[in-house]
Amino acid sequence: MAQQIGYARVSTIGQTLDTQIQVLGRFGCAKIFREKASGANADRIQLRRLIRAVSNGDRVIVTRIDRLARSTFDLFAIVKEITEKGGQFYSIAEPWADTLTSTGRLMLAVLGGLADVERDLIRTRTAEGRARAIKEGVKMGRPAQISALKRQDIIQKRQDGKTLKEIARSFGISPGTVSRITTGADSHKSRKKKRTSI
């Protein structure tokens, strides 16, 4: 049978869920999933359990929209998951957020458009920030774990006849890393030699 499922969330451990639980209970929610986690946290265990529990005809209810999501993009994604499983969504504080009504469905479509805009804005800001950082000389990606000086030492030891394991042990790295460094050096030397001969 279809049921009303509540979702209550607070951001910090010190806050209480009591008021939300009481409101959801009065609204007819027999089952209430309770969470103490930030709305920005993508890994909300109870929310995941709720979505898995939704069946055709079930109605997911929250006291306010911000209990479910902190951004348009997240709200649209979560409500979309619920409706794709045949469930419905309703916010007590925002009655327009009701997917059972034509107005609610229209608002969901609008949210989808806003979520796309938000995603594009985030992508643009990220790209601009990255380009600005590169222009200012900031090196992107993980910092190199082995300095250029150590690389030269590794290459020299290999040329002196030391084994991969011996070098790896002395530098505290894996034999595979030693192999990549020395193979890369040989490859670079070969290309340089080829250009010189041309």
Rank of each mutant, 00 (worst) to 15 (best):
T163C: 04
G86L: 02
R169Q: 13
I61Y: 08
R158C: 03
T103H: 06
R169D: 14
T126Q: 11
Q159G: 14
I32D: 04
A53Q: 05
Q20P: 06
L149P: 04
Q20H: 03
S102F: 14
I181Y: 02
R119N: 02
D66Q: 06
Y90M: 12
G129N: 09
F171E: 12
A127H: 03
K135T: 08
S71V: 09
I51E: 06
E128H: 10
T124R: 10
R105L: 05
K165M: 04
R44Y: 01
R52D: 15
T124G: 11
E35S: 07
R105K: 11
R64Q: 12
M140W: 14
A131E: 14
K165L: 10
L121M: 11
R180Q: 04
R34L: 00
G112K: 05
P95N: 04
S55L: 06
N41G: 01
L121A: 09
K192Y: 15
F171N: 08
D18A: 09
K85Y: 03
S55C: 14
I78A: 09
A69V: 02
T103N: 13
R195S: 10
L47I: 00
I21H: 05
T126Y: 12
K194L: 03
V117D: 03
I155N: 07
T72K: 05
T103M: 14
I32R: 02
T177I: 06
R130E: 13
Q88L: 09
T124C: 10
G28C: 01
K165Y: 13
T101M: 09
Q3L: 09
I122D: 07
G87H: 04
V79P: 03
R123T: 07
R34S: 12
D18H: 04
I13E: 14
A37Y: 01
R132W: 13
D186H: 12
E118W: 10
Q20N: 06
A131T: 11
A40T: 11
Q152K: 00
S91K: 00
S71H: 01
T16M: 02
Q156T: 08
Q152P: 08
T103E: 15
A8E: 03
K194E: 13
T182R: 05
G28H: 02
A148M: 06
R132T: 15
V23I: 13
S91M: 10
Q145E: 15
L50Y: 06
P95H: 05
I78W: 12
L106S: 12
R9K: 00
R180I: 11
R119S: 02
Q159D: 15
N41A: 10
